[in-house]
């Protein structure tokens, strides 16, 4: 038996089996071709990443020919439209990315204010409190939320949440723009709840039962056990879950395109309209544009920023979750 395996691996040693020589050789050859195909297809994922990185880099470099890197990264003014209207190439349009970053951060902060507590509490409930029956009822709710396309969330934000935020804030005397960061952020937060919750649920469930028993054996209540023992033990994994949530929040597009604004205000007031990196990418690339104008190239520069930011967040998060799993496996 060992020889057969060796023959397949090495492909040269003659087989001891009864199969005729030619057929055996053909089989070995076929398997090697198939194995090569399998290995090649596993490269597609790498090629995708490389493709993303290269195309973003390439177009960004062309963008930086027209707009200096310093002006892009530290400029406080974003108004790419001006350049187009006056039919000038690049130089006079303002491509300062700071207002977009602030807007993205503001909406992500609102979203995580919703998704963090809701996601963690529901994960704790599912992992520690829910009976199997309650779990079989509660878990699908989160799975359905996870399956709803973001364009639907966006429409819901415009249809229900934005008017509600506006009316209720005006009732208490606040000035609110119709496309507030708050409305978009809250809806995005709900969208992210299942992401945070499912990872946190896994992570909490992976905390060894013996730690819980240790606490119960001392007379700790369930909430004391969760708060003092389980959560601190699960902390790195929970950090990973939250980071993946943040990564999702800054990369989310449709909710903000539909429910947040287009104008780049530099503000941290969630009742104001702000714009985000993704909104501007969509704005820059819709409509009939020449492929080479700085306006379209700017979208790639924004894309590169977004890619780098999410890459860093994802890698830290994946590392945290992975380390954590290894510790308790």
């Amino acid at each position: 038996m060992a020889q057969t395996v060796a023959a397949v691996r090495g492909g040269t040693r003659p087989s001891l089996m009864a199969a005729p020589e030619g057929r055996r050789a053909r089989q070995v050859l076929g398997e090697r071709v198939l194995l090569g195909l399998l290995a090649a297809s596993s490269l597609v994922a790498i090629l995708t990443t490389v493709g993303i990185a290269l195309s973003l880099l390439f177009e960004t470099l062309r963008f930086l020919d027209a707009v200096p890197l310093f002006d892009f990264l530290f400029g406080l003014n974003w108004s790419p439209q001006i350049a187009i209207r006056e039919d000038q190439v690049g130089s006079s349009g303002a491509f300062g990315v700071i207002p977009l970053l602030v807007g993205t951060g503001l909406i992500a902060a609102v979203a995580m204010t919703v998704a963090g507590p809701l996601g963690l509490l529901s994960a704790i409930y599912l992992a520690e409190y829910a009976s199997p029956r309650a779990r079989s009822f509660a878990k699908p709710i989160l799975e359905i939320l996870a399956g709803i396309p973001t364009v639907v969330y966006g429409f819901f934000a415009v249809l229900v949440v934005a008017p509600f935020v506006r009316d209720s804030s005006e009732a208490v005397g606040f000035e609110v723009s119709s496309e507030s960061a708050l409305a978009a952020g809250v809806v995005m937060g709900v969208m992210i709840v299942p992401i945070v919750s499912s990872i946190a649920d896994d992570v909490i469930s992976a905390v060894p039962q013996s730690l819980r028993e240790g606490a119960y054996g001392l007379g700790a209540t369930k909430s004391e056990t969760v708060r003092d023992i389980v959560l601190p033990a699960a902390l790195p994994g929970i950090g990973g879950a939250l980071l993946l949530g943040v990564s999702r929040a800054i990369g989310e597009t449709m909710i903000v395109v539909m429910a947040a604004g287009l104008s780049a205000h530099l503000t941290v007031n969630p009742l104001q309209a702000v714009t985000t990196v993704t909104v501007q990418m969509v704005a820059l690339l819709t409509g009939d544009q020449e492929f080479d104008s700085p306006k379209t190239l700017a979208a790639f520069a924004l894309g590169l920023l977004l890619f780098i930011a999410t890459l860093i967040l994802n890698l830290i998060a994946l590392m945290l979750v992975r380390r954590y799993r290894e510790r308790y496996d």
């Binding site: 596993s42 994922a45 790498i46 995708t48 990443t49 493709g51 993303i52 195309s55 973003l56 390439f58 177009e59 993946l244 990564s247 999702r248 800054i250 990369g251 989310e252 597009t253 993704t278 990418m281 969509v282 690339l285 492929f291 979208a299 790639f300 894309g303 977004l306 890619f307 999410t310 890459l311 994802n314 890698l315 998060a317 994946l318």
Partner: peptide, 28 residues
């Protein structure tokens, strides 16, 4: 590396894939 790359790719914002499509399939 391949595995980390795949896990990361699953969390890359979808709009970035759109840019890849624009640059690679439409542009290139």
């Amino acid at each position: 590396l391949v595995e980390i790359n795949i896990n990361n790719l699953a969390a890359v914002p979808s709009i970035v894939f759109g840019l890849l499509g624009l640059a690679a399939f439409l542009g290139f």
